[in-house]
């Protein structure tokens, strides 16, 4: 396992550089790097594609509007609408950027456990309260999701069929209200149980990670690549 701190730092650096870059060379190399990482991480390609599809819905939404609204000479026009070269270029740029960033973060972040990443955040000096919030929230998402399924199944067993009606919205509202209620009461029990076991504000974790030689290698290699991208974008040699 790679040190989660390295993963967080590299993902952040890569995302920031790519998000604000605009030179085609930089975007192309960033995309290649992201694809390289996906293969290195041996991700399930089908899963990767499904995720990309979801991400690209917002991008597709932009493709509907931007080509027409960007100023510039018309590439071609119909129905009195003009498609500009700048508009198309902006769309391509956005598509490459968002896909490259998503691919890289999939390869780097989704290969760690969430607890590992949150533990990494602690060592990157993120405030304790926020780290604790992450721990609690993640620990109980699954529990509350189970609770949700229990209630919705009970509703379905009693003939609940969602449709566009006030009754449906009312049922969902009561469902959500019940979830809040149960969550709030559960959190009080959790806190009491923690205090009973001597909780003094310190979180102890079972799995620790160490910064090893190959982490250093990965950090240096990827860090240098990101710096190289930044140099290609903003460096003086053009």
């Amino acid at each position: 396992m790679m040190d989660p701190r390295v993963k967080i730092l590299v993902t952040l650096g890569f995302s920031v550089v790519l998000a604000v870059a605009d030179r085609p060379v930089v975007l192309g190399m960033g995309m290649a790097f992201a694809i390289f990482l996906v293969f290195l991480a041996r991700l399930n390609l089908r899963q990767v594609m499904t995720r990309l599809l979801v991400v690209n819905t917002f991008v597709a939404f932009l493709w509907i509007f931007l080509p027409f609204t960007f100023p510039g000479p018309a590439l071609f026009s119909f129905w009195g609408l003009q498609i500009t070269r700048q508009g198309i270029a902006a769309c391509v740029q956005i598509t490459v950027k968002s896909n490259a960033i998503v691919l890289a973060s999939m390869a780097l972040l989704s290969t760690s456990t969430v607890f590992g990443l949150v533990h990494g955040l602690h060592h990157l000096k993120v405030p304790d309260k926020l780290v604790h919030l992450f721990f609690f929230s993640f620990r109980y998402i699954h529990v509350i999701h189970m609770e949700y399924h229990k209630i919705i199944n009970a509703m379905k067993a009693r003939g609940f069929e969602p449709d566009t009606s006030l009754r449906t919205y009312k049922s969902y509202a009561y469902l959500i209200g019940t979830l809040f209620l149960k969550s709030s009461e559960r959190s009080k029990r959790i806190y009491q149980a923690m205090v009973c076991r001597g909780f003094d504000g310190t979180f102890w974790v079972f799995q620790h990670f160490a910064f090893r030689k190959r982490d250093l290698f990965a950090l240096v290699f990827m860090g240098l690549f990101i710096l190289f991208l930044a140099f290609m974008q903003w460096g003086s040699v053009r």
Partner: peptide, 10 residues
């Protein structure tokens, strides 16, 4: 914090 955390989960 536990309450805010569990409510965020909700």
């Amino acid at each position: 914090i536990p309450e805010v955390g569990v409510l965020s989960a909700a």
